[in-house]
């Protein structure tokens, strides 16, 4: 399978003189991939997603989409192929759900063009694909966390366009971070479905090892801006890697029948300056 999005030895710092937050990272996303990016807070996951989406340019190295360097594409052209679902969406004004989804059509429209029937149909399909058709006319800020997240995912789908078939990538930054268990499951199964049924290539950064284990076919483990390990989930998600990643002792069970992997954190190894890890969450750098 060919690589769709490829970060080739990229490094990044936010300002001259600041430390590198991503250092020498190489990541390959094949067409149709569903990859998870794991790592502790501040490991560079969000920054890596920004580099992959092209909203930031790497300080060194390059990112390729298909076989074209991403920085040769206009922002508009890049956005037609790469959509981002941010961790949280905070609106300054009160938009309706459908308006948020239609905003995904921005890179497909001219300066003075208004969304036409095609765009509206695509938005409606995106709502249907995320099971949110009934929320279309509701105000975004009145929705629950899970509903909001599904609307934002729908916007990303609308952005990627016609029946999501063109080579396109959705990058999701901790899509379940602020959700309760029920919504987490809902979003997990939505993402699996979108990947399998609609062929959307995805990279998902997450702190939820079990979600990553259950839906991602491959994992990228990041720590201190570097890739610690990368490869198929079953090979990468080992007790040893979890310890190196989080300084946490964990039991990793593989269900013999289903092949499902579950991770159970046991204890913290190095009780240095960091807070107890299990369940703790924060903003990535």
């Amino acid at each position: 399978m060919r690589d769709l999005l490829w970060a080739d030895n990229v490094s990044f710092r936010y300002a001259a003189g600041a430390p590198l937050v991503v250092e020498g990272v190489t990541v390959r996303l094949a067409d149709g991939a569903l990859a998870g990016i794991l790592g502790p807070n501040g490991s560079g996951k969000t920054t890596l997603l920004r580099l992959l989406s092209g909203t930031r340019r790497p300080t060194s190295g390059r990112v390729l989409i298909g076989d074209r360097p991403l920085d040769q594409l206009s922002r508009r052209d890049a956005a037609r192929q790469i959509a981002v679902v941010p961790q949280e969406t905070e609106l300054a004004f009160e938009y309706r759900a459908i308006e948020i989804v239609l905003m995904g059509r921005h890179p497909h429209l001219g300066v003075f063009t208004v969304e036409g029937p095609d765009d509206i149909r695509i938005a409606q399909e995106a709502l249907a694909a995320t099971g949110t058709s009934h929320l279309s006319d509701r105000f975004f800020h009145e929705l629950s966390g899970g509903e909001k997240q599904r609307i934002v995912i729908a916007a990303a789908l609308a952005q990627l366009g016609h029946s999501f078939s063109a080579p396109s990538v959705a990058l999701l930054d901790e899509p379940t971070a602020s959700l309760d268990l029920g919504y987490q499951l809902e979003i997990s199964s939505l993402l699996t479905r979108l990947n399998q049924d609609h062929g959307v290539t995805m990279a998902i950064s997450t702190h939820d090892l079990n979600m990553a284990a259950s839906i991602c076919r491959e994992l990228i483990l990041m720590r201190d801006g570097r890739v610690l390990a990368a490869g198929p989930t079953s090979e990468v998600l080992t007790p040893d890697n979890v310890r190196r990643l989080y300084d946490v002792e964990a039991d990793v069970h593989v269900n013999d029948e289903t092949g499902h992997i579950t991770v159970l954190p046991v204890r913290r190894i190095d009780s240095g300056s960091r807070l107890p890890a299990p369940g703790s969450r924060g903003n990535p750098a």
Binding site: R50, D77, I82, P86, T89, F93, M103, H106
Partner: peptide, 12 residues
């Protein structure tokens, strides 16, 4: 008004 980062990823 949705956010600068989000706007950038939508092609702005």
């Amino acid at each position: 008004s949705v956010g600068a980062e989000a706007a950038a990823s939508r092609g702005v």
